[in-house]
Design a protein around this nucleic acid. Structure first.
Lengths: 182, 182
DNA sequence: CTAGAGTGTTCTGTAAACAGAACGCCGCAT
DNA sequence: ATGCGGCGTTCTGTTTACAGAACACTCTAG
């Protein structure tokens, strides 16, 4: 493959995640390499994003860390927007001529809030609540949200989602942008 | 054209899953290799399990298939159900007392159809269309679907989604079941 | 019966992922 | 100070994933 050697490419995120998980468990690089049955040189370069690991290597490293391999990838489990109490997962991005559609899974801890500034003109958001309760605010309006509820609103104005004081809020968020994203 | 029932046994490896997805989309091996920017020999051996692919290769293949890489892995949450013309990715399942909510990403090839029998009483479905066009049929009604459209209907009656004759249909599908799934 | 354009496979040389050794660095003994 | 055991990085030779070519095969056209 004629792929450029990019220190911050797709593998870099994976490497950083591995290192974070390893250190969170108080494991040394050598210890994890031994447990995984791979060379510690391999693990070193993998963590620092200087390697493009094979599937076998990834499985070998994920196992002793006790996480499914999917948790190491940045396209499904990774894109954590670390605001206190909020986890956002970008599930899918569909790029079409004249329109880009993004799907997020939003999870707000009790009392947590996600505030968005106005997006560009023509942007539209939809929300389908999966569980929990909360409110969405847009255009000066406040709408209560419960499981199964659906809202749709223009996002070219400031808006916010807030979980209830004692309940989580989990929802699918679909954002349609008329001009393709940069 | 294509009709849908159930996934295959989950014992298939990454290669088998890629092949299933590719064939579900009606792509030839050569075509997918070209779209992914990898050699077709590589893809051939990858699909038949004779290779241990690198992360770059996996990303390259997952992209044109339109699934997150995690969906190709064995240890999923993001199991992929592929059948002729249709690809369904289970993105998330939320189990709560008295209710189970499932989120799917549905992708129908032009002309493909997904037919569902009546679910149990009280089941409700929602659909947010991400791209393409098609129709949804429920309760004798036929509703046209375009990007950004949202439908919500009782699923305790037979219903069907169909892509347009010349366009794909991609959508988020949320299913709320009042009694927890087995 | 070719000829051609498709398919998926197997082959070939190159680039790189791999295991493991060698290295430099730091803390803590004595 | 001089070890010594730990750490993570860099080096070295072997293995192998890779791109692309060559291949065998199946259609369809003429």
């Amino acid at each position: 493959m004629a792929r450029v050697v990019e220190p911050s490419g797709s593998g870099a995120g994976v490497g950083a995640r591995i290192r974070a998980l390893r250190e969170a468990r108080g494991l040394s690089l050598s210890a994890l390499a031994a447990q995984a049955g791979i060379g510690k040189g391999s693990l070193s370069e993998l963590e620092t994003g200087r390697r493009n690991p094979t599937l076998d290597t990834l499985y070998a490293v994920a196992a002793p860390l006790g996480v499914p391999l999917a948790a190491l990838l940045d396209d499904h489990d990774g894109a954590v927007l670390a605001h206190h109490g909020m986890v956002t997962t970008r599930v899918r991005v569909v790029r079409e001529p004249g329109r880009t559609t993004e799907v997020y899974l939003i999870r707000l801890a009790p009392g947590a809030e996600r505030v968005s500034p106005a997006h560009s003109r023509g942007v539209e958001e939809q929300l389908v609540v999966l569980g929990g309760a909360g409110v969405v605010e847009y255009g000066g309006r406040t709408v209560a949200l419960g499981p199964g509820d659906h809202v749709r609103f223009a996002a070219d104005q400031p808006h916010a989602y807030r979980a209830g004081p004692d309940t989580e809020l989990e929802a699918v968020n679909v954002i349609v942008t008329p001009v393709p994203l940069g």
